[in-house]
Design a protein around this nucleic acid. Structure first.
Lengths: 111, 111
DNA sequence: ATCTTACATTGACAATCATCAATTTGAGTA
DNA sequence: TACTCAAATTGATGATTGTCAATGTAAGAT
């Protein structure tokens, strides 16, 4: 027997959420986003991310594009490099689900 | 510039999480799980869920199975009917992301 | 025992997807 | 200008997926 709930999202919201879940529902992409999140500078370039995956550079680029299009990563190009970092949405999802914990945050115990 | 984070999940955890994200990353399945969550008794049978989807009964049954296998729904058969309800994991995901709000819960404002 | 009713399963098919190899783009460098 | 390097894009291919129609199963009803 589970707790009754109220739903809070419009169909448009749900469509976006489904897109984000779908983007995260692939082991490679989940690893990629975790690597970005865990990187010291909170951003990473394709050349950093590619070796860990065992995949081709083109494939990694492809997955990163999907994450960007889902609103989970943002891309900033500096010189020849593309740096990827988490969006607020991605940050929210990872921390809400306790997949990642913000370093500076300490919540009161009754939350 | 985003907040630095610490990762908390083992590879095995991440594999499960990816499976759950994947299961939720389909509009039909997301609607299904929302319908179950929103139902008055916190459970629903296939015959209740099918009409809203515009899909075949067999297809709905298929999607429900995927959600069960991902650990998001549980099935309990009573008589001729199969009743589906949220697991704790699904409940946690939906409420953590504010997709659903537990009726009895009221958090202090500073959380 | 036969017939419904509710659901699960199977087989088939079109569409989507993950991946690679190869090429292109675009920015800095010699 | 020509060259190099990082990343994006393209085209092809095999695998996975969402869907349906049809069939199977199992529980109650007649």
């Amino acid at each position: 027997m589970s707790t009754p709930v109220v739903l809070t999202k419009s169909p448009a919201d749900l469509s976006l959420i489904a897109t984000q879940f779908k983007a995260l529902g692939d082991s490679t992409r989940l690893e990629l986003i975790m690597s970005v999140a865990a990187s010291a500078t909170s951003e990473a370039c394709v050349c950093d991310l590619t070796p860990n995956t065992g995949l081709t550079q083109g494939t990694v680029s492809h997955h990163l594009r999907i994450l960007v299009e889902a609103g989970l990563l943002k891309r900033s190009q500096r010189g020849k490099w593309s740096y990827y970092s988490l969006t607020g949405a991605a940050h929210g999802i990872l921390t809400s689900l306790n997949i990642a914990i913000p370093l500076h945050l300490s919540k009161p115990a009754n939350c």
